[in-house]
Amino acid sequence: MTPSPSPALSPWALIAKAVGWILMAGLALAFFAPFLWMALSAMKPAEKIFSEPWAPPERLVLEPFIAAFQEARFGAYFWNSLVVTAASVAGTVLFGGFAGYALARWRFRGQNATLALFLIGLILPVQAYLIPLRLLIEALGLLDTRWALIFPYMAMELPIAVYILRAFFLSLPRELGESAALDGASPLAVFFHIYLPLALPAAASVAVLAALSVWNEFLLAFLFIHDESLRTVPSGLLAFQGIHSTDYQLLFAGLTIVSAPLIAVYVLAQRFMIEGLTAGALKG
């Protein structure tokens, strides 16, 4: 008996398949249960959240979410995260693109040293530079400003960006830019008009990778920003939890508010995001 690609399945095989599918679905449900519990608990009165953890809410309501959004400065947290993420991702893509391009396009003295520098940056744990970085930020007078996060985030994301973009530029034919250069276009113009538009897919995965890690970064945000009005989402969440630590309904609503947009973006662009997030790992 040889395995055939799509035979008519025997009833037993069909049942086995169905059982497997049900098991898998059960597993998936268990896996997803924390999210469901979080969103549903937000709609339950606080005293029932832990006394009757399984009970569904009596009705679906929106008020707790609105209350959490107004009560905690989620508006401000989102705005701060947005500004910090946008700036550091833009910087990472732009400067990482420049550097990756330079490393792919030309041969020059110091090239290998630069590559090695960024390679080290790929494996360096943040703790390796955390303490002096804190002192540096302080010395530069950047403490409690958004720059205290933007610059370090860019520096942290640049190595992977350089590596991914360099690999991409290496895969493009060299002749592409040469005719334009012969026509007298400046290297900057060649980069912006010819190479960068072609590198959009790679740039996009770099952007996704950087955006998610910046948006979710906690340690630096927690250590460098103490001004309530400048907190980003993760460190704002910590402050929010500290102030409302027993207003469980509000807390669950807050957690839901923070995860909902991320999950929504993820569902809309999941293919893109999965590729972006794993791109770094497989190239490494």
Binding site: F98, Y129, P132, L133, L135, P152
Partner: peptide, 15 residues
């Protein structure tokens, strides 16, 4: 890239 990485990662590593 080198300036930003240098100032905010490499120099602190030396530190």
């Amino acid at each position: 890239a080198v300036l930003i990485f240098g100032l905010f990662v490499a120099v602190p590593v030396l530190g």
